[in-house]
Computed example of a mutant assay.
Amino acid sequence: MTAKREPISRRERPAKPALTRRGIVDAAVRVMRSEGLEKVTMRRLAQELDTGPASLYVYVANTAELHAAVLDALLGEVDLPAENAASGWRDQLVAVLTSYTHLLFEHPQLARSALVARPGGANYLDLVERLLLLLSRSGAPREQVAWGVDNLLQYATATAAEHGTQERDPLSQDDWDALAHAVHGVDDAEHPMIKAHLPALLAGTQDARLSWGFDVVINGIIHTPLPEPAA
């Protein structure tokens, strides 16, 4: 005679962890790292967290807010070193911005998302706080510093979105070679300015151009007053 199987009570099943915004964002970061940002959807996260998509909307309003939260989580990896008296404010400012840009190089889809959706979490606020502190050391008026930080982040984010995408495109080197061939082969009479600015037009490493670009934006912030209010 076969022994009767003991029923398993539902109470003995391990309980699922309670949903939290932090847990949802952590799961989104895991999915992004393994599958890419395009897979970070409410449906995919619901599957990851063994729940229904509707449950997630209690904590995150939409996908755009979710992507902004993912970006804020990653911004915790930006290098915000302790202030160094041996290093000038400009060098420290460029170092922080370079760290931010290199982080986004690793996630170009997130960089493109950041162009239209800014995070508002603790890590983003820490980054803005440090940028304001360092830029204010230039002696520029407070208003120029306040507006200038936005320009610095826009330049860094756009650069990461462009170059990060190109680095992951298997055809990008072919595109670059075709561009270089076209530029170097221009006719002097038809495109004299292009010819006159070679080889500098395509010269320089990515890091050199990035650093120079930051200097250009910083110098513009320092020396360009805000427009007068309209009468």
Rank of each mutant, 00 (worst) to 15 (best):
L75T: 10
L93M: 09
P81L: 14
Q166Y: 05
A28Y: 11
P119E: 05
L75N: 13
L133R: 14
P81V: 11
L49S: 06
A64W: 00
W212C: 02
N84Q: 15
T205R: 10
Y124R: 12
K195C: 01
V40K: 02
G121N: 04
L97R: 05
I24N: 05
L152P: 01
L115M: 15
P199E: 01
G185E: 06
V145E: 04
G220H: 13
E38F: 00
P108A: 00
A140N: 03
L202P: 00
A200Q: 15
L49T: 07
A231C: 02
L202I: 04
H163T: 06
H197D: 14
F214L: 08
S99T: 10
R43T: 05
V96I: 13
L153Y: 00
T41R: 02
A189L: 04
F214C: 02
H223L: 09
A140F: 06
F105C: 02
A64K: 12
L134D: 06
R209A: 10
L56E: 09
K39V: 00
D187W: 01
N62P: 09
W176S: 00
A111M: 06
R5M: 01
V186N: 04
D26A: 15
R168G: 08
L171C: 04
R130L: 03
V58P: 00
A146F: 14
E38M: 02
T2Q: 04
A28E: 10
L103Q: 03
K195S: 14
A114C: 02
H102R: 15
G88P: 06
L110R: 05
A208R: 14
R43G: 00
A180M: 03
G220Y: 04
R30I: 03
A3K: 11
G164D: 01
L201H: 02
L226Y: 02
Q166S: 11
M42P: 01
G213E: 09
D207T: 14
L127K: 03
D187F: 00
W176F: 07
H223E: 14
P53I: 03
T41C: 02
V25A: 07
L66F: 10
Q144Y: 07
E129K: 14
G139I: 10
A27D: 11
N219W: 04
T20S: 15
G148Y: 06
L104K: 03
A46G: 06
K16E: 15
R142M: 04
N84D: 15
L135K: 03
Q154T: 13
D187Y: 02
E12K: 06
L45Y: 08
S136D: 13
Q47G: 10
G88S: 14
L66H: 10
E106P: 00
E228N: 06
G76D: 11
F105A: 05
V94P: 00
D175Q: 08
R43M: 01
L125A: 14
M32E: 13
A85D: 15
Q173C: 01
V78N: 10
E83Y: 12
I8Q: 14
V25E: 07
T159K: 09
A178L: 12
D126C: 05
L56M: 09
V78I: 10
V217Y: 02
L125Q: 14
R90E: 15
S113D: 11
D91M: 03
P81M: 12
A208L: 10
V183W: 05
